[in-house]
């Protein structure tokens, strides 16, 4: 049990290192002078240029620059945004809370809806309706869902605020918008897993014991269906990241997504790189959680 966990942690460190290296290489690969890339669209004065050269050790050999970059990244120092005139860690730290709140709410809503859809909608025609809805959900650009929800519930009906992050009401529409595609996909995976499990011999055995169909579903099949669904954790994380980038724009919410889009459009590379490294860190965490969840669900994997 110890060895696989150690291996996992090792792999995690490796991914983080790879992400940081890739970020650093991206910086070098940027067209033009590295100093230009770091300044981005920020104010360009000789003083700032000198400051950048000193801070990034651009006058030293590349190996030293790289080592120094890694060393600082390990200590949470991700450089400075010259566009915003603030340290990157501060820029990102300040925007973390609203994004986390939104992502967590959306994930919770999506998972809950998926479970309900997969477990409850089991009659043939309900299934057909439900899987058609899911097809539409996963095929619709998330921003369109947001726009439609906005125009109906905010502009038409006035139930929810049009933009901003004030109060729980402001969270409802963005969370639904982000949660729906997750729900659509997860429900499909869960339903498929349930269907497969229900065809397995152990399901026949369970029925032959006099179990209700509902008990076979919940007590036996669900655990089996959770395995592929857990695999989707990493994918959902991608949807959430992609979601925040776009949904925060649509609903005018503050957050990491806004920061990222702004940084990308004004070539504020230090901020973009920090977001990439942060995403890698979150990915490592999610992956570890996924693996642990696997071990928890499936005893067959517990042999080391």
């Amino acid at each position: 049990m110890i060895r696989p966990i150690l291996r996992r942690v090792g792999a995690g460190v490796l991914v983080l290192w790879a992400a940081a290296t890739a970020a650093y290489l991206a910086l070098l690969a940027a067209p033009g002078d590295t100093v230009d890339a770091i300044i981005g669209d920020g104010a360009d004065t000789p003083l700032i240029r000198a400051q950048i050269i000193q801070e990034w050790h651009l006058d030293r050999p590349a190996v030293v620059q790289y080592a120094d970059f890694l060393w600082r990244a390990v200590h949470g120092d991700l450089g400075r945004s010259y566009l915003l005139q603030r340290p990157v860690a501060e820029v990102i730290g300040g925007q973390l809370a609203p994004t986390l709140k939104l992502a967590a709410t959306a994930a919770g809503f999506g998972i809950l809806l998926a479970l309900v859809l997969a477990l409850v909608a089991r009659r043939p025609w309900v299934r057909r309706l439900s899987s058609t809805t899911e097809l539409v959900l996963v095929s619709t650009p998330p921003f369109l869902i947001g726009i439609v929800l906005l125009s109906v519930f905010s502009f038409r009906l006035g139930w929810f605020p049009v933009s901003g992050d004030r109060g729980a009401a402001a969270l409802v529409l963005p969370a639904i918008t982000m949660g729906l595609p997750i729900a659509g996909t997860l429900a499909q995976v869960l339903r498929d897993g349930l269907d497969r499990a229900l065809e397995e011999p152990f399901a026949v055995t369970a029925r032959s014991r006099g179990l209700r169909e509902r008990s076979v579903l919940v007590r036996h099949a669900l655990k089996h269906a959770l395995l592929p669904a857990v695999t989707m954790l990493g994918w959902s994380f991608g949807v959430l990241i992609g979601g925040t980038v776009i949904i925060e724009q649509v609903f005018g919410r503050p957050g990491l997504g806004q920061v990222t889009v702004q940084a990308v459009s004004s070539s504020d590379l230090p901020v973009v790189l920090a977001v990439v490294i942060l995403a890698a860190a979150v990915f490592v965490v999610i992956n570890t959680v996924t693996d642990l969840a696997y071990l928890l669900i499936d005893p067959r994997l517990r042999r080391s």
Partner: peptide, 19 residues
């Protein structure tokens, strides 16, 4: 490692560099 990254983020990184 690359495929673990959200598509949007990879694309954004590229655009940030290339404009």
């Amino acid at each position: 490692a690359l495929s673990a990254f959200p598509l949007v983020l990879l694309a954004l990184l590229f655009i940030a560099i290339a404009g």
